[in-house]
Amino acid sequence: MEINVSEHSGLKVVAVSGEVDLSTSPKVRDALLGQIQGGSGVVVDLSGVSYIDSSGVASLVEAFQTAKSRGKSFSLASVGETPMRVLKLARLDQVFIIHDTVDAAVQAG
């Protein structure tokens, strides 16, 4: 699993790739919360994620709620078939703000 952070129009784009499971999701959680607590709005680029489990989804939910409470934007982008299926199983596809591409997410602010 790998995490890369870049900046686009004042937003932090956190690109996650590989398998997000119980052994790797704490790193995703720390990376997302770190950016939000640092005062940034966040776009999570999930295009490289081949697997995500409930602990990975939990990291996204926690980050989403933290961002909301601080008035920061938080959205998901480029969600592939496999992670999207898990979000749907959790009925979270209706909760998260999801964009087709990182560009669209950045434009939406």
């Binding site: 939910v61 709620q65 959790a90 909760v95």
Partner: peptide, 18 residues
């Protein structure tokens, strides 16, 4: 309850669903 959006507790739901 899935309407209660919070981290954690999804595992058993996934198993039952699948």
């Amino acid at each position: 309850d899935l309407d209660d959006v919070r981290p954690g507790g999804l595992g058993v739901h996934f198993i039952r669903e699948v």
